[in-house]
Write a protein that binds this DNA or RNA. Structure first.
Length: 719
DNA sequence: AGCATTACCATTTTT
DNA sequence: TGGTAATGCT
């Protein structure tokens, strides 16, 4: 038996032992959220609840895995029972149900498209409508895909999305709607679903089929949803549908860590949870077990003037600890060297897997990667471009997909295109012939392209004899080998190694179908080399939920972080702030913030001066040590006696009441204050866009050419 | 029709 | 910088 009372703090205990009824757990960063959920799972099993009656929805597969592992550790013997907990991402969960209950309107076997498949389909639709031909400013396929997906995720019309965030494309609204329509038809016709469809179709299925809904409500008597602040509207409705009967729903989240608004996540969901399930018990976890006090002081300061609905002040009992560093290299190039030498220094104290370098966008780690490579420091990178070098994996997977579903269009296109001489047009012709079982056309093609014939032969062969997923995968790889060597002459050994790992992954599945759905919905590269000890390079988004002893955060300058694209709307700016918060709260002992004085900018012709990020500028300077790189490459610490140009920090030890957001005109949490918006003029800087009201009497304004400034209202003329 | 070359463009984050 | 789409060649 586990001694819950002693191993958990009072708030955690309450969350872990309240099993019935709706509950909302507001879990501050590092407050032992996973621990709480795991203990709750253990408690449920101990109370005799069958694991198969528990549904645990997490944001990533990694998180799900982590919870199961830790629950297994905790429970020891009964670990196997916890393994029976249903769960995963919303998308994977949706697909597992949709595979068993095909929704109306789909013919044949369903296939899920990953983003590359979806882009291909979208491009096809665009070409069919011959839209944007010869128009250079017509949005690119990727852009179109982003816009359509955003519209669906936020449940807005394409016009609305364009008006709100891509005004320069407003004239294409009609064309984009047409493409959207055509894309919808295309998916229906070929039984394809993209990521967004999985959620909407599951909702449609459950709504149109009350008996099925009843079945699943009974099946999943206890529901837990992790990272609730990152759910979008459909996801929240799905939770309401599934939890509607028994109401045993626990949502865990932190509104201060909501960083997925760009893909439709709605902070309002977590605020509205108590309305969705009246009688919700609210538990706040505020004790931080992760970071030392100096790090925590800094992260608390980041949130200081952000509007928060669920106000919390994190505290820790971890005494002492190092004050965070702000490092100011001369350029982004020397930043890379400084980061590398800091990493080397840290490696004397910590193992590599306890060190992470974080950044806003995937490309920003480029220099650091080079430097680390030079010194022979092993690292693994998460986030950023994923499928660029995974083309070979996708090739192999398309064969397997075609074995399972002969009419999987994207897979067919991929396989056929591997044959030299077959392009997009021929692909489609062949596919149509295959669909109609038109033997003559296929025979002709096979005669013309012997490689294609071999492909077909292989598929038929593999279909007849049932193999294990691993056996199937090896067979395909063997067949694919010559093409691997032909297509990637320069680096096929490396890719071959990756394929061997694919066989390893396949070996852990009994069911090919399940393996395919997992691999389509998860990033296959994540599983690679998980066991190798290495320094982590990661985008902040991919770092969510993880922690390291030492965290280095790079490129903290305007236009990089906050991203240039987030400088137009107050709510986007607030999301960047939360991103900064998430990044800094990953650190346990050491936090290093890197602020290069210049960055490479090709429009400016090389290195141009950069403004330090407002997230660093606004920090009270007693919270960090300030180190600057000299031209000689040495470091100087700015002495405390040196004057600070910053006014006394607007820092109240009492913290602000929850309603404070209303008086600061940001109001990005909805009700209350009006959002700071519109333009103003300054005598020297000219016209600028108002980003944020800085109480009581200042505004943060983005002036084109000058960057972000905080200016007293009396010097500004409003428009 | 496919494929190589060139010219140009726009730059985030992810299931 | 690199990826993408129009252009031109086979």
């Amino acid at each position: 038996m586990i001694d819950y009372k002693n191993e958990l703090n009072p708030a955690q205990y309450e969350a872990a032992t309240t099993l019935e009824g709706p509950m909302l757990v507001i879990a501050g960063a590092g407050s032992g959220k996973t621990r709480t959920v795991v203990y709750r799972l253990a408690n449920m099993v101990e109370q005799g609840i069958s694991a198969s009656n528990i549904l645990l929805l997490t944001f990533t597969r990694k998180a799900a895995q982590e919870m199961q592992n830790r629950a297994a550790q905790l429970l020891g013997q009964s670990a196997a029972m916890v393994g029976g907990v249903q769960g995963g991402t919303f998308h994977a969960f949706a697909y597992s149900i949709l595979r068993m209950h095909k929704p109306d309107g789909y013919e044949g076997d369903l296939s899920v498209m990953d983003s590359a498949d979806a882009a291909g389909a979208l491009k096809h639709c665009k070409d069919m409508l011959s839209l944007g031909k010869g128009d250079r400013s017509f949005p690119k396929t990727q852009t179109v895909m982003g816009l359509l997906s955003k519209a669906r995720n936020k449940e807005l019309t394409v016009e609305d999305v364009l008006r709100r965030e891509a005004f320069h494309l407003a004239s294409y609204a009609g064309d984009l709607s047409k493409i959207s329509e055509s894309y919808r038809g295309f998916k229906r016709k070929h039984s394809l679903m993209d990521y967004d469809d999985l959620l909407f179709e599951l909702e449609r299925l459950l709504k149109s089929n009350p008996e099925l809904l009843e079945y699943y409500r009974d099946r999943f008597k206890y529901i837990m949803v992790d990272e609730f602040q990152d759910t979008n509207l459909v996801q929240a409705r799905l939770v309401r549908l599934l939890g509607g009967g028994h109401r045993n729903v626990m949502a865990v989240g932190d509104d201060a860590q909501s960083i997925y608004a760009f893909r439709g996540a709605n902070v309002q969901n977590i605020l509205d949870f108590p309305d969705m399930f009246p009688g919700t018990k609210i538990v706040k976890l505020e004790e931080n077990y992760r970071s030392v006090q100096p790090v925590l002081n800094l992260t608390n300061a980041i949130l200081d003037d952000a509007p928060q609905a669920f106000h919390k002040k994190l505290f820790t009992r971890r005494e002492g600890g190092q004050t965070p560093h702000v490092m100011r290299p001369l350029s982004d190039l020397t930043q890379a060297s400084m980061v590398t030498s800091k990493v080397s220094e840290l490696l004397r104290t910590y193992p590599p897997e306890e060190i992470a370098v974080l950044f806003r966008a995937g490309y920003q780690s480029y220099h650091v990667e080079m430097q680390l490579g030079k010194l022979g420091v092993k690292f693994k990178k998460y986030g950023g471009v994923r499928y660029a070098d995974a083309a070979h994996v996708k090739d192999v997977l398309s064969y397997i997909r075609l074995v399972v579903n002969p009419l999987d269009l994207p897979a067919f296109q991929r396989m056929a295109s591997l044959v030299k001489g077959i392009g997009a047009k021929t692909c489609l012709k062949l596919y149509e012939a295959a669909q109609k079982a038109d033997r003559s056309v296929l025979h002709k093609a096979c005669a013309r392209y012997p490689e294609l014939q071999e492909d077909f032969k292989l598929l038929e062969q593999l279909r007849t004899k049932p193999l294990t997923p691993a056996g199937l995968t090896s067979a395909v790889i063997e067949h694919y080998q010559p093409r691997l060597e032909a297509n990637y002459p320069d680096d096929y050994p490396r890719r071959q190694h990756g394929l061997e790992q694919l066989v390893q992954i396949a070996a852990s599945y009994n069911d090919v179908d399940l393996m395919l759905s997992d691999l389509c919905l998860e990033d296959p590269t994540t599983d690679k080399g998980e066991d190798i000890s290495a320094v982590t390079l990661s985008t902040i988004h991919s770092a969510k939920g993880l922690e390291w002893a030492a965290v280095l955060l790079i490129d903290l300058v305007e236009d990089r972080f906050p991203s240039r694209h987030a400088m137009n709307k107050a709510e986007d700016f607030e999301e960047e702030r939360r991103l900064m918060y998430v990044a800094c709260t990953r650190a346990r002992d050491y936090l290093g913030l890197f602020v290069p004085a210049t960055i490479y900018d090709r429009s400016g012709g090389g290195n141009t001066p950069a403004n330090p990020s407002p997230f660093v500028r606004d920090l009270p300077d007693h919270l960090y040590e300030d180190w600057r790189e000299n031209f000689t490459g040495t470091l100087t610490r700015r002495e405390a006696s040196m004057p600070s140009f910053r006014p006394a920090p607007a820092y109240k030890s009492t913290g602000k009441p929850a309603g404070a957001g209303a008086e600061s005109a940001t109001g990005s949490l909805g009700n209350g204050g009006k959002p700071a918006s519109g333009y103003c003029t300054h005598k020297i800087f000219g016209k600028g866009k108002i980003i944020q009201h800085v109480p009581p009497d200042k505004y943060r304004v983005n002036f084109p050419g000058f960057g972000l400034k905080v200016i007293m209202a009396q010097y500004l003329t409003m428009e």
